[in-house]
Design a protein around this nucleic acid. Sequence first.
DNA 1: GTTCCGCATGAATCGATAG
DNA 2: ACTATCGATTCATGCGGAA
Lengths: 283, 283
Amino acid sequence: MKTQLLFGDCREKLKELPDNSIDLIITSPPYADNRSNSYGGISPDDYVEWFMPIASELKRVLKQDGTFILNIKEKVVHGERHTYVLDLILAMRKQGWFWTEEFMWHKKNSYPGKWPNRFRDSWERLLQFNKNRRFNMYQESVMVPMGDWAKSRLKNLSETDKIRDNSKVGSGFGKRIANWTEREMAYPTNVLHMATECGNKNHSAAFPESLPEWFIKLFTQINDWVLDPFMGSGTAIMVANRLGRNAIGIEIKTEYFERAKDILIDAPLRLLDKKESYDAITS
Amino acid sequence: MKTQLLFGDCREKLKELPDNSIDLIITSPPYADNRSNSYGGISPDDYVEWFMPIASELKRVLKQDGTFILNIKEKVVHGERHTYVLDLILAMRKQGWFWTEEFMWHKKNSYPGKWPNRFRDSWERLLQFNKNRRFNMYQESVMVPMGDWAKSRLKNLSETDKIRDNSKVGSGFGKRIANWTEREMAYPTNVLHMATECGNKNHSAAFPESLPEWFIKLFTQINDWVLDPFMGSGTAIMVANRLGRNAIGIEIKTEYFERAKDILIDAPLRLLDKKESYDAITS
DNA sequence: GTTCCGCATGAATCGATAG
DNA sequence: ACTATCGATTCATGCGGAA
């Protein structure tokens, strides 16, 4: 199993990857006007123009039955939602992608704040794109406990456990999923309930580990290839690694790249020889 | 207080309403390919073209500081999400609307089913449009109990009530919210958790009462005017009525119209003289 | 009166079959 | 090939009847 970390601009680094080699692309690109010191602070109006060349490369490296999961949310500009995400979806389709689905990530602990004309933004889009109508999907790997658990199953659990686990129905992870038999499991929906990991360790990741974990399990098998062209601190790559998938991460910012490298190399989960496992790290 | 029920095609009936007279429009128009025997089963490709003349009239009758809430969801066509809702948002902006916000309605009891390439669709869009960047919003009226309510307040509730009410956290209504003091309340987010009322008595509504209730409280005050141009069985109008708002409902289908009329007239909640209150009913 | 169990019912989607 | 219809799949919810 391999894990490759590439340091640099993904617009360049993606060209080094072979055609039709990736099973799952999952990424959270810099939002408009964010990370201005790395990707140059793309303005909302230029966002689509900036992203489409990257999307083109992603389409090239993705396998025919692979999947591209794009985590994105439009920001508020002059009191209204900007339309660059809508424009992006339309442009992606024009480029030949299928807009298969839009998953909803409900962020349970959204950023606090109060404004006179809007409430806290508590959800993000997880856009699913494919190269074909047919693609690999392993639904059984993300099944969740059934909903009528309340009436029968949880009688002997503690008060807080009962209440806490309730909110995980739909999509997400209960901690005791392993205890349920298959008959008591149901397929999830396209709504994911996951809290953002805020003060975890010393890095605040774009998404919690459970998010890439869900999609990696859903769209790949062991030894498949996972790509994150905007790796950040490497959450998706680390999870792919832990789940026994090959992974490629690209990051332009030195600070993020070094942190991701440290985390991945220090990870005690890999039983393989470190040298063999990470010989593809380039910096 | 008045409640007007207009029988007919809203493309015609809307013309009878005066300019700048409505505080809140909340509606759930027929989705593409649905209600084929009333509005002619609009195909997804023609949806925007069909809706925009209606949107134009809605813009005319809405007050300058009023709000338009549109409940809609795109359907799957040939294995991918159709883009007519995205196109609709872009067309609305071109018509002069502000796309202020997109609320998320998480439907816990989504339609069942299993398919090889997708999960159950469990959420719908609640698009907020405005005529200006400034509009009326009464945030305090929809505050919800704070996060630790479960540990303190629900001790003496029944088991099922506890579990049931839990799912309404985030945005929504607990039945006993009135018991909380303001100090224990927090502002909600833009995610609403509400189940559809399916097996309800003898009418199944498009949305549960708590949905229009939330928006009516948020965007109107007593004696303001609420409009639903696709009234259906009249859930939104009935709730507006109960909350002391003036309301106008338009419905083209005889069956729905009659049902709505019966429900509204039989409602024992109105203390006003029935004749005065409903003298504007036309059929 | 409670609690529990069974049953009908949805803004659905896919694939096969038929015209 | 392209459209129209139909069956199979599946689960949260509320209601009614039974213990």
